[in-house]
């Protein structure tokens, strides 16, 4: 397993709003192995769900978008990806309205996608530095 995370409490290379690794470690009660495992699984799941979400949004399946966004909201919060969790929450709300406010739904979808990309890039930087 790649040791991207560290229990060193020094300044992080990543904006903690994108991913707060110390927060994740605290939540895992200092267990690096569990934190690593969760981070790996989350990134894999995120990549798959972003694709799925994009397809569902394109065909206007707001129910599926809401379900995926809700799932992402919880997982992202757990791994301390705060900004992503917030964007997922906004998208979930817009999708639950049935996407009736099309501009709002599109904006929420776009912002979630951007934030997901930022998160994936940030974790990739951690991989490079490990």
């Amino acid at each position: 397993m790649v040791n991207r995370l560290s229990d060193d409490m020094g300044p992080s290379l990543i904006d903690p709003q994108i991913f707060d690794q110390q927060q994740l470690l605290l939540r895992c009660m200092g267990n690096l192995e569990v934190a690593e495992r969760c981070l790996t699984r989350f990134r894999q799941r995120l990549e798959a769900d972003v694709e799925q979400l994009q397809q569902s949004a394109t065909v206007g399946d707001t129910g599926e978008v809401a379900r995926l966004a809700h799932f992402m909201k919880g997982s992202a919060a757990t791994v301390a990806a705060t900004a992503l969790s917030q964007k997922a929450h906004s998208l979930e709300c817009a999708a639950r309205d049935g996407g009736t406010e099309e501009i709002e739904f599109d904006r929420a979808t776009r912002e979630f996608m951007n934030e997901a990309e930022r998160f994936i890039e940030a974790v990739a930087r951690l991989d490079e530095n490990s």
Binding site: C28, M29, C38, T78
Partner: peptide
């Protein structure tokens, strides 16, 4: 149903 939350919860509870 979320594997990640289940993992983190399990770890904390076991500890």
């Amino acid at each position: 149903d979320d594997w990640i939350t289940a993992q983190v919860l399990t770890n904390a509870l076991e500890r």
